[in-house]
Design a protein around this nucleic acid. Structure first.
Lengths: 157, 157
DNA sequence: TTGACTCGGATAACTGTTGTCCGAATAGAA
DNA sequence: TTCTATTCGGACAACAGTTATCCGAGTCAA
């Protein structure tokens, strides 16, 4: 089981976008993080479709967050990029084979599916509790100040 | 993000194995669940490597659980088949690009990684709380009795 | 001793993710 | 108003991991 690597990039981008007042292009975000520009563009597209960022075209265009950082949860970003489908999907094996349970007797979901659903909800709930603002606060606390100001300056240029 | 489909099969097999007193072959388990025999064998191999089941060779051989059903958690099966690696893997993007943070200043994990780790722990904890015995109890409660006894009989034959 | 049956690891097909490219649309400058 | 440089957006390949399969080594029962 592996989550899309784009989630990490998307979160980093949200953190950066929140700090920059002006639109930031995909090219700049890619260079700052030293990742493939073309592929990062794809992730930004997904964020855009999900309504987390808004893109402005033309010169001096780029991406901007649509909401305040404390209004965007980590789960929002994860679901935008990695999708909302749970990792486990019940294939109803109990309805197959020589000892199949007839469909009309399967009104309640299989206990295995229930267990997985419950764990999935716990996971999402945990991600929902953390916002981009929380990440920023942590970054500001643990990153050397000269790098923070340097990055701000680098974005402006 | 998608978990291996073999997890579902593995859990069903554990439930069945717990009910059968004698070893059950991979072929019978595959037929009962109407899934590919060759591929199910692979999942059973993984369970065997993890020490959850023991295989006996030769005639009247097959698979048996090594522990009582209430001593095997759903997490045990998930980790045996799907692996123990967390879904998110931090690639340390903060150490890359023109504004890279030097490695010696990165003693604490990145806040994004911490958030993901926390969610992953919540997920695993949720799966750890449910045992095969719990699944069996639920199956016994929700499955028509004639099918339960029928399956037991079918396994014996 | 025989023999048939079992699991185990090595080997292909396939789906989904990763990565790349070029065209459509736009905002600003002339 | 026209033009141009620059932007994002969706369509197009390469790769990896999962899914599926086979045959050989080992083992127990007869």
């Amino acid at each position: 089981m592996k989550m899309s690597g784009g989630v990490e990039w998307g979160l980093h981008c949200c953190v950066v976008l929140s700090g920059a007042g002006a639109p930031v292009t995909a090219a700049k975000l890619a260079e700052l993080h030293d990742v493939s520009q073309s592929y990062l563009a794809k992730q930004l597209q997904l964020l855009s479709r999900a309504g987390l960022v808004r893109s402005t075209l033309g010169q001096s265009g780029g991406y901007v967050l649509t909401r305040a950082a404390n209004e965007i949860t980590v789960l929002d970003v994860v679901e935008a990029i990695d999708g909302v489908q749970p990792a486990f999907r019940c294939t109803e094996v109990r309805q197959r084979g020589p000892m199949a349970v007839p469909a009309e007797r399967c009104d309640t979901p299989c206990p295995i599916a229930r267990t997985m659903d419950s764990a999935d909800r716990a996971w999402r709930e945990s991600l929902r509790r953390v916002t981009i603002a929380d990440l920023i606060a942590d970054v500001n606390r643990t990153t050397p100040p000269e790098i923070l100001s340097g990055a701000r300056e680098w974005l402006r240029a």
